[in-house]
Design a protein around this nucleic acid. Structure first.
Length: 338
DNA sequence: TCTGGGGTCCTAGGACCC
DNA sequence: TCTGGGGTCCTAGGACCC
């Protein structure tokens, strides 16, 4: 009788791989995708090819830093519609697999729920089918829950397969820093370290009630579970219902004049209104990033849910008026909540 | 290293009501 | 006059992820 497994499928250097597919001359070269493709502009790296990573280029790094590390890299603008198409091809290939439940996690990753006696063989089949359909390589993590499958993927990169279960959790993860866990970022890792909790094994042995005082009533105990490798076991294939939709813009030159900030917010609100896709906005939020990098948000519940661009723009303008400062601005954003 | 853009969920305090 | 406890909504911010 086949056992239930969770597989985490993660495309290798997805965005760079999509770009290389349509420009075969770039195979093996350092390729950096991000922003408008101009490394003298404000922008960050979305994905770097493995050749670019050898020069120390990483996702999230400013393009201006990336070009210093590798002046010869090929810089390309992000082409989101192309990645949407490529991603849809991958997800279709996954859904075509027999007997699987697919939970999409983003452009380049998904969880699969499958009953099988040989998860490694199934993983190899997944890789072959994805490659046949899209010419893209992926890594597959195998786990007895989503958390372990997700973390397993990191050990299988690139193009490999790795299995992580309750059986080998502490052997593989116990001595690693808490930061290695999916859901522990720099801030939380620092807080945990302040409590003397440095490794995954430390966290697993911590007192949930004590951590609740530090991290919050839900987060504290949840993080102890993370340390133990415990997480959701059932892959959920129900279609995702978006909670919000927004747009934001970083300006190449800071906006000094508040009238320009107003104009930009109104324009973004209209753009967002045009992308509501029939889901009325119940709340609207405005983000302002002041120079040098201080970010503030304000939001308001609308008198009535709306799809109307004029109404949303007026509401966003009203929210913007509540910002107390009028310093130079480097980014504004507008978000609608449903 | 002068730090994008798209999201999600949690937390905490205050308002307000019963 | 002084005072309770619970529930829910709103809002700002924090943290994290891809």
């Amino acid at each position: 009788m086949a056992a239930p497994w969770v597989l985490h499928v993660d495309l290798d250097q997805f965005i760079a791989a999509v770009e290389v597919l349509r420009r075969p001359g770039l195979v093996g070269l350092p390729v950096v995708v991000g922003g408008r493709g101009d490394p003298t502009e404000r922008g960050v790296v979305a994905t770097a090819s493995y050749a670019a990573r050898e020069h120390g280029i990483r996702s999230g790094m400013p393009l201006r830093t990336a070009v210093k590390r590798c002046p010869d890299a090929v810089f390309l603008p992000a082409d989101n519609p192309a990645y949407d198409v490529a991603s849809a091809g991958v997800m279709d290939a996954l859904r075509a697999l027999p007997g699987v439940v697919v939970e999409v996690m983003g452009w380049d990753e998904a969880f699969l729920g499958v009953d099988t006696d040989d998860p490694e063989a199934f993983a190899a089949h997944v890789q072959a089918q994805v490659y046949a359909a899209t010419s893209l390589r992926c890594t597959v993590g195998i786990g007895d829950n989503l958390l372990r499958a997700k973390i397993a993927t990191g050990f299988g990169k690139p193009a490999g397969v790795f299995r992580l279960t309750r059986g080998n959790w502490f052997a593989v993860m116990g001595d690693r820093p808490t930061r290695a866990l999916w859901g522990v970022g720099v801030k939380t890792a620092r807080k945990l370290a302040d409590r003397g909790l440095h490794t995954v094994a430390d966290l697993a042995a911590a007192d949930p009630a004590a951590l609740a005082a530090d991290l919050g009533p839900a987060r504290g105990p949840y993080h102890v579970q993370l340390g133990r490798g415990i997480g959701r076991e059932r892959v959920d294939g129900t279609p995702w219902v978006p909670r919000s939709h927004g747009r934001e813009t970083t300006f190449q030159a800071d906006l000094e004049d508040w009238a320009d900030v107003r104009t930009e917010v109104a324009g973004l609100a209209r753009t967002v209104a045009g992308e509501l896709a029939g889901r009325p906005a119940r709340r609207v939020g405005v983000t302002v990033r002041f120079v040098p990098f201080t970010t503030r948000t304000r939001s308001a519940t609308l008198p009535a849910p709306t799809l109307d661009a004029d109404v949303l723009a007026a509401a966003a303008a009203g929210v913007l008026d509540r910002f107390p400062t009028r310093r130079a601005v480097r980014l504004v954003g507008v978000r609608a909540e449903f």
